[in-house]
């Protein structure tokens, strides 16, 4: 089939409205088409994989997706649910039945007794379609209220870099620091170690990854950083 060649080099930086390709392609994330013309919607890096034109965004808020595990902050408590800031355009909602093992007796109990404004949880997105607030659950292994440790924030578009290829970066961070680390898809990261110094060390390393994400040999350098700064 006749195809006009793709209009970009692999991982080329493109801007909104950039004409990526003309022909029989498919629009992947952050790409829109008008007929056979495919354009970028964001500032990002263009890619073609299996005929699908995609742009990896360099900036942007977190867009919820079912199955994502995120770290949310309680910003409001309504009778039988908690509203969570998950760094997305919409507040997440955690209904009592998705958090408690028995029904909340609203005559006798207050939802605040279980989770209060300002507290943080690790939760999974169970439904989302942009017309309703994303719904979350904590009823799975490893989810629930954050009781200790440190939470830091990075740009949500940087999450893949912090995890690294096949989890290489995050495994190295865990191994070198001895901390438990959980990277929420929304760019919030929970670090729990034996002491605050270990947590601060990991936080520093993550900020370094975020700042130097474009450089090569980063995994090795982060490894050295951890060894050097560890007492």
């Amino acid at each position: 089939m006749f195809k006009i060649p793709i209009n970009f080099g692999t991982r080329q930086l493109v801007v909104p409205g950039f004409l990526l390709a003309e022909g029989k392609y498919e629009a992947g994330p952050n790409v829109y088409n008008e007929g056979d013309k495919f354009y970028s919607t964001v500032i990002g890096l263009a890619e073609l994989r299996n005929n699908v034109v995609t742009v990896i965004p360099l900036r942007g808020c977190y867009i919820p997706s079912v199955g994502d595990v995120v770290i949310g902050k309680v910003v409001d408590v309504i009778t039988t649910a908690w509203m969570l800031d998950i760094r997305s355009p919409w507040l997440g909602v955690l209904f009592a039945k998705e958090h408690l093992s028995k029904p909340l007796n609203v005559m006798k109990e207050d939802a605040r007794d279980y989770l209060d404004v300002g507290e943080m949880i690790i939760a999974k997105i169970i439904s989302f379609d942009r017309t309703k607030n994303p719904a979350l659950t904590t009823k799975e292994q490893g989810l629930g209220k954050i009781q200790r440790g440190t939470v830091i924030e990075v740009d949500p578009t940087r999450v893949p870099r912090i995890i690294g290829k096949k989890g290489s970066m995050i495994s190295m961070l865990k191994k070198d620091s001895g901390c438990q680390i959980y990277v929420g898809q929304n760019g919030r990261i929970w670090i729990s170690g034996k002491n605050r110094e270990d947590e601060a060390l990991v936080a520093g390393a993550i900020k370094k990854i975020e700042a130097e994400a474009h450089t090569t040999g980063l995994t090795d350098r982060i490894h050295e950083y951890l060894i050097k700064n560890r007492m």
């Binding site: 801007v15 909104p16 409205g17 354009y39 500032i43 965004p57 360099l58 900036r59 942007g60």
Partner: peptide, 11 residues
Amino acid sequence: LADAGIPMRDL
């Protein structure tokens, strides 16, 4: 707007 990562048709 582009810096905020907001999806746009064009500049």
